[in-house]
Computed example of a mutant assay.
Amino acid sequence: MAQLVLFADYQRKGRRVFFSREDLAQLLSIYSLQVSRGLWRDYAIDHRSNMAVFSIYRRSQEHPLFSVNKVVLKGDRDANYVLLSRNRQLASSRLLSDIIEVLARQLAVVD
């Protein structure tokens, strides 16, 4: 005899985090400015259990120069934005515009 399985029992219990349309508009505007300057060439968007990540690359074969993480911790209503460069935290804020300002200052990673 067949056993009834409820799909809701197998869904992820955590809240999925995505970039909103406004978030993406801000990120892509600074990205396009830096692409026109020849500094950045590629980007990727990833979704993990409690965060969304916008990674910026100089070349697609490398590790990301910068990544903007939108993190929602358990119990928080609002997201926290974190700017990372090679696993170092450069900035953190509840507002994406603060993170965009740091990126707009033309941060350059020295090899």
Rank of each mutant, 00 (worst) to 15 (best):
A2N: 11
Q3E: 14
L4M: 09
L4F: 14
V5Y: 13
D9C: 07
D9Q: 11
Q11M: 09
R12F: 04
K13A: 13
K13N: 11
G14F: 13
G14I: 02
G14D: 11
R15K: 15
V17Q: 07
S20K: 07
R21K: 14
D23G: 06
D23F: 04
A25K: 14
A25L: 12
Q26T: 05
Q26I: 00
Q26P: 01
L27A: 05
S29E: 15
Y31D: 01
W40L: 10
R41I: 01
D42G: 02
I45K: 04
I45Y: 04
D46Y: 08
R48N: 09
S49H: 10
S49L: 09
N50M: 04
N50Q: 12
I56G: 00
I56A: 02
Y57E: 03
Y57M: 04
R59F: 13
S60P: 04
H63T: 13
P64Q: 06
P64V: 09
L65Q: 04
L65K: 01
F66C: 03
S67L: 00
S67V: 01
V68E: 02
V68I: 15
K70M: 08
K70D: 00
V71E: 05
L73Q: 15
K74F: 10
G75L: 06
R77D: 14
Y81C: 07
V82Y: 06
L83F: 07
L83Q: 04
L84W: 12
S85A: 13
N87H: 14
N87E: 15
R88K: 15
L90S: 07
A91M: 05
A91T: 08
L95Q: 15
L96E: 03
L96A: 06
S97V: 12
I100A: 05
L103A: 05
L103M: 14
A108P: 01
V110D: 13
